[in-house]
């Protein structure tokens, strides 16, 4: 049985719905801006890891169908990454471009975080059927940018952590497994994917 696309769409929007609901009910804590930034960043990272899990899962017997969710997961990753970036620009810095520029130059976790977004941007733009057709075989090459983007996202997480490395380390391990699987497969099979 196939789950219809709108269901996945609603599922992808549900974290945002929860965030809005928390905001209305005063559940964002003492520092709501920080909460929103953390929340959207977490979901962007999780959806990035979910996007990268789809190809390996699709190889499992009877799971081929999940491959059609890869684009949606990737787009939702970009959606939450955009929310993450915008909450920093608007809520945290309130368009203070001087401060934002200084942050970009001086604070490695911001430089790295922003670079991650810049890598995801062309992937989101070229996710449509038209672009897939237009780019042909280059589409796949372009979309390998998701690997450096994921590595940078993990670096961003590590760089903003002060002392408790457990959560960033767990995410790094998950990414290492996902990249390791691809590396192994590339060695044993010459097919791209």
């Amino acid at each position: 049985m196939q789950i219809p696309q709108p269901v996945w769409l609603l599922l992808g929007l549900s974290p945002l719905a929860r965030l809005i609901q928390s905001g209305i009910s005063g559940g964002l804590g003492a520092n709501p801006i920080e909460y929103i930034i953390r929340f959207s960043g977490d979901w962007a990272l999780w959806l990035l890891l979910i996007s990268l899990s789809i190809s390996p899962i699709a190889r499992l017997p009877g799971c081929r169908g999940v491959i059609r969710l890869r684009r949606l997961a990737g787009l939702f990753c970009f959606f939450y990454a955009t929310l993450h970036l915008c909450s920093y620009l608007v809520l945290d810095k309130y368009f203070d471009w001087f401060d934002i520029g200084r942050d970009l130059r001086k604070r490695p976790y911001i430089t790295v975080g922003f670079s991650t977004f810049l890598l995801l941007l062309p992937l989101a733009v070229t996710s449509s059927k038209g672009w897939i057709k237009r780019l042909g075989r280059h589409w796949g090459t372009l979309h390998t940018l998701v690997y450096p983007a994921a590595i940078l996202a993990i670096c961003h997480y590590f760089l903003m952590t002060k002392a408790d490395w457990r959560l960033p380390a767990l995410h790094a391990l998950l990414l290492a497994l996902l990249l390791g699987w691809r590396w192994r497969r590339n060695i044993f099979s010459p097919l791209p994917g």
Binding site: A30, N31, I33, Y94, R102, D103, K106, P108
Partner: peptide
């Protein structure tokens, strides 16, 4: 300056602008 946080401003808990 601090490598992580801009120390020239602060967010007072409960306020929007730094």
């Amino acid at each position: 300056d601090h490598p992580r946080w801009d120390q020239s401003k602060e967010r007072r808990i409960g306020e929007f602008l730094r």
